[in-house]
Structure formats: C-alpha cells, structure tokens
Simulated assay, not measured.
Amino acid sequence: MSNYYQHFQNIRCEYYPCHVLEKDKIFNCLFCYCPLYALGDKCGGFFTYTDKGIKNCTDCSTPHDQDNYDQIINKLEEIIEMVKNEKAGQGSD
C-alpha cells in the first residue's frame, strides 16, 4: 500500500524550504502550520521560547520530515483530549 497521503511538497511556495532537513530527507509540506504548536512544551519538537514568551519553532523540522507523519498523528490525539477536557470544564450554556 502506498502512503502518498502522508506527504506532499509545494516547491512553488515562496518560503520553500522553510526549514533545513538532514541530507537525503524528503521535505514534507503537509503540516506547514504545525498542528502540534498548541501542545506547548509537550509537542515533541525542537523549539525555544523568545524573551517575550513566544514559542519559536524556527529550528524545528519535525513536521516537515516525511518519516514523522505517524508521530504527528499520534500527538493529535493529545490535542483532541485537551479540547475535550477544556470543553468538559466549561459546562453547558
């Protein structure tokens, strides 16, 4: 079975490639805006925080490495749980 749904490249993007990958890695644009950003320090990527407390993912290539598709999908489950817990804590209006 092919896994083409796990990857695409937009080489016409004015920012391509926006991060540097290891040699011979295929750049993946599927997660251009990282879905794991919301997990803060639990995202599993390589990030820092600026002096103003803003998460800086400039040196992180985790979502752009084709081999990390499964890792990201698994982490999305954490985001789903976060949202469920937040919603449960709010009660109904």
Rank of each mutant, 00 (worst) to 15 (best):
M1I: 08
N3R: 11
F8V: 08
Q9A: 13
R12T: 13
P17L: 06
H19G: 00
H19D: 03
H19R: 14
H19W: 06
E22G: 12
K23Q: 12
I26Q: 13
F27N: 02
N28G: 04
C29A: 08
F31C: 01
C32V: 03
Y33T: 15
C34Y: 06
P35A: 04
L36M: 03
G40L: 10
D41M: 14
K42F: 13
G44R: 00
G45Q: 03
G45A: 03
F47P: 04
T48Y: 06
Y49T: 01
Y49M: 00
D51K: 11
K52N: 13
C60W: 02
T62C: 04
T62K: 05
P63I: 04
H64A: 01
H64I: 00
D65Q: 10
Q66R: 15
D67H: 09
N68T: 00
D70I: 07
I72P: 04
I73E: 06
I73A: 08
L76I: 14
E77F: 10
I79F: 02
I79P: 01
I79H: 02
I80W: 00
E81G: 08
E81Y: 07
M82D: 11
M82L: 12
V83D: 06
V83P: 06
N85A: 11
A88Y: 02
A88E: 05
S92I: 14
D93M: 10
